[in-house]
Each structure stands twice: as structure tokens, then as C-alpha cells.
Design a protein around this nucleic acid. Structure first.
Lengths: 150, 150
DNA sequence: AAGACCAAGTCTCATTTTGAGACTTTATAG
DNA sequence: CTATAAAGTCTCAAAATGAGACTTGGTCTT
């Protein structure tokens, strides 16, 4: 099978534009951004700051399974990218508060679309997982094999 | 500073609903899903399959910096979650094609919103990074210190 | 007839990322 | 005079990821 059959184009959303230049992360703005806010904690952090600003310790309590190390690092990265601002209060001991910048606010809209999708489709995903896991433990299912490559 | 000041509510999008139950990933559908598709390669993979289905080797070429190991693993996870389907063609050697399921298609809409945001705001982010890095190398900026915590 | 080759993986080992938790600082509370 | 509190930093251990050799079995070349 030297040639892969030309796949039928679907009337999809237009990812083709930015993919044309390839997925090379160095050249691709979208990958650059997605690699950053698509890391383990950033999106969650942004939603945690959506309703109101919070202090370091408050974020630490609110995200039960993050480590201090990653909390600090994620906040620094978001601050560097201009999504979050850091405010130090000269109390003793000093308090630090984090807020979404206007840029950070602007990402909430697409982010909430994704969160909404996750919430709506979680049952579908759980069902799919159950099917998949059941199929793995049972006999291998040959019905998945196609009749012809074209 | 024993009490943190009550932060002003902002007329934000409503993340509060699912956050009310806490961020505990075991109990929270949104975290469950976000932890999965928010991993290093899933979102990129979904966009790579948006326009058309692709074969394993094709995906490997199209994503220049993924390893075979993670390509396999990410596809398996997406398949398990019902976002992607796997089709084996009994040629020699066998070919395997990956496609978005209807569920997978449905995530393209919120995903494209995020991609669009990334594309539009990349200049802002680069500018913020430049400012941040410049500030780090220069003298520490005391203007960031607030006058009063309340 | 012997070997090369292909696609789609799997396997092992090295590297990178993340986690857990001790340690720091300094004014105030007990 | 000791304990405490907030926001980190630091070290070491564990987990995730990367690089790349190896597998499998029919065809294709020599």
C-alpha cells in the first residue's frame, strides 16, 4: 500500500490555514500558545481566577492536587505571557494576589466554550470509555477490520 | 493578614457552577475531561484530524516533534474517550487510519475558538513576554508593590 | 531462494517534567 | 521567647515523555 487514499474533505472549521505552514512549534503561533496554556495547570488556573482574583495560598487550597512548585511556576508563566498580573501587599508576612489581566479575561470566552463542551459531553465520554474497556477485556473484535482500503 | 479581602465579583462567564463542587478531579467532570484533552498532544492531534482522516505514518510526519510512543498513546486515549476511531486495512503491511468520530467533530467548535484566540492574540503575548524578560534583567521594579491590602 | 522493505506499532533506556515536603524570612501574637 | 503566618525556594524522588532499536509477515528485488 504505497499510496494512501485521498481522504474526503469535510466541511470542517478552518484549521487548515495555520496548519499550512506545518506544525513546527517554532514557526507556528498557534502551537506556541497552545503548548503554553495547554500545559497541565494553566487552563485550570485561568478558570480559578475567572470569578475573582485570589491569593497564592487561596489558589493552593482551591486546587487540591497542585504542588507549590507548579503553582508558582504556572503563575509565573501566565504572568510572563501577560494573562495574569501579580500584586504584592507589603504586610507582614507579605501577601500576593493574582488577577487576570484584560488579555487573560479575553481567553475566558473560548475557554468557557471548551468547559461547556466538556460538561455537556462527559456522559458520552464515560460511555465510550466503558465500551472500550469492555472490548479490551473480551475477545478481540474483528468487525473493526475494513473490507478494502479504497 | 489573617483574612483575605473579599474579591469583587466580575460579571464573568460562569465557571462558578462546576467549581462549586471543588476542583477535585475525581468528582469533577470538567477536570476529568480537561486533564485528558489538555495533555501535551491531544488538542493538536484533534486539529490534525479535523480536515480529513489520516494514517498513522501521516500523522507522524505531520507532527514533527512527537515520538511514535506518544503518537500511539495519544491516539489510544482519544479512541478510548470516543473522540477518534481506528480503522485497520488488511493490506500487507496492514494500514491503519484514524478518523474523528461525531463526538470528536463536536469538539472542533470550542477548539477552533481557542485556536482563533491564540492566533489573534499571539502578538500581545509576545509583547508581554518581551516586557517581562526585560523587567527581569533590569533592576527590580518596586512600582508593583501595592499601597494597601484592603 | 535470500534478502530488503514497508506500516504500525512495542520495548528499553535516557531525559525532562512534576510532585512532596523541608527550609527561609520577619513582624506580630501568645 | 517561641510559635505562627504567607509566599515562596530547594532538594530529592517519582512520573511522563523522548529516542531509537526491534518485531511481523507478506511482497519485491536480486
Amino acid at each position: 500500500m504505497p499510496e494512501h487514499p485521498p481522504a474526503p474533505a469535510r466541511p470542517g472549521l478552518d484549521f487548515a490555514a495555520w496548519q499550512a505552514a506545518g506544525f513546527d512549534p517554532a514557526r507556528c503561533p498557534v502551537r506556541n500558545v497552545l503548548d503554553r496554556i495547554g500545559d497541565k495547570w494553566s487552563m485550570l488556573m485561568l478558570t480559578a481566577l475567572a470569578a475573582r482574583h485570589r491569593r497564592f495560598g487561596e489558589l493552593f487550597r482551591v486546587m487540591p492536587d497542585i504542588s507549590k512548585r507548579m503553582l508558582t511556576q504556572t503563575l509565573r508563566d501566565l504572568e510572563r505571557d501577560g494573562l495574569v498580573t501579580r500584586h504584592v501587599f507589603p504586610t507582614k508576612p507579605p501577601g500576593v494576589e493574582y488577577r487576570l489581566s484584560p488579555l487573560g479575561q479575553s481567553v475566558l470566552e473560548p475557554l468557557s466554550a471548551l468547559v461547556g463542551w466538556a460538561d455537556r459531553h462527559f456522559p458520552d465520554i464515560e460511555a465510550a470509555r466503558a465500551r472500550f474497556d469492555a472490548a479490551q477485556t473480551g475477545q478481540p473484535d474483528t468487525s473493526l477490520i475494513e473490507q478494502d482500503a479504497a
